[in-house]
């Protein structure tokens, strides 16, 4: 009898901890990136009364002399711009790119402000021309061409770009096809908090098409990021999962 009670007790113990009871703990705030509003709220709580200092909360003590600190505080108290009057030529003199006619057109890699995780079985190729990065399949480098490009502004706009891409892969860029493409578009949140619109051009094609494309457009305000994969329809479909993994991993450099 006692043994049965013991076994029953063990079973009951096994079921412990399954309820949705609240837990409380303190964590260091560096673990989760803060929302912009939270950063502003934090800065506001640490700023002196009455000040509207965008640098509030940043400890510059290691980098700034006492005199400079006093001057900065004085300027901020008077509502002056502490950056006014800075001669940008001082910075330009130290520009490592000075003297280059056009680094992008010369084939130099553009510095990337983005982060990503390379999907399993893929390799990262060199950045070239306007591409921030290219990718290819390990062991089958011609299976597809995948790359990331970032252009200022809207880069021609969604409709113009999508219709152009449709033409590139032999899809009639009619309004009806364009609408079909929009109807099947998906929004994907990347791990880095970017919002991507994913377009699957393979849905408008025959199975045996030798030119196909999947693409994503990410509008970040002042820049539009394009992530594209081209190849035969079969290869593009086969590698769509990797493409989505790459897309989801995109983020901004800290």
């Amino acid at each position: 009898m006692n043994f049965l009670v013991f076994v029953l007790g063990l079973f009951l113990l096994a079921g412990c901890g399954t309820g949705a009871k609240p837990r409380q703990y303190t964590e260091l705030a560096t673990q989760t990136p803060q929302a912009p509003q939270e950063q502003m709220a934090d800065a506001a709580t640490q700023a002196p009364q009455g000040a509207s200092n965008p640098h509030a909360g940043i400890d510059m003590s290691a980098n700034i002399t006492p005199d400079a600190r006093a001057n900065l505080q004085k300027m901020l108290a008077q509502g002056q711009d502490p950056h006014a009057g800075i001669n940008m030529s001082d910075f330009m003199a130290g520009n490592p790119h000075a003297g280059l006619e056009n680094s992008a057109m010369a084939g130099e890699a553009l510095p990337s402000p983005y982060t990503w995780i390379i999907p399993q079985g893929w390799k990262q190729g060199p950045a070239k021309m306007m591409r921030l990065v290219s990718f290819y399949k390990e062991g089958a480098p011609d299976a597809f061409d995948c790359y990331i490009v970032a252009l200022p502004g809207t880069a021609g706009g969604q409709e113009a770009n999508l219709k152009r891409w449709m033409g590139q892969v032999d899809i009639d860029p009619s309004d009806a096809n364009y609408q079909k493409l929009l109807d099947n578009a998906r929004t994907i949140q990347t791990q880095g908090g970017l919002q991507a619109r994913f377009y699957d051009l393979t849905l408008l094609q025959q199975e045996a098409s030798d030119k196909s494309m999947i693409a994503a457009i990410i509008a970040t305000g002042d820049t539009t990021i394009f992530v594209k994969m081209t190849g035969t329809r079969a290869h593009v479909k086969q590698n769509q999962k990797g493409f989505l993994e790459l897309l989801k991993s995109l983020g901004l450099k800290p």
Binding site: T18, A20, Q24, A29, T30, D42, T45
Partner: peptide, 27 residues
Amino acid sequence: QSTQAGHRRVTAVDSKNFKPGEKITFN
């Protein structure tokens, strides 16, 4: 709530058994 001195006090519930209509007991 907002972070103080680099720390935040977090209240959390496990979402494993969430059911539609279930009240979350954050208190």
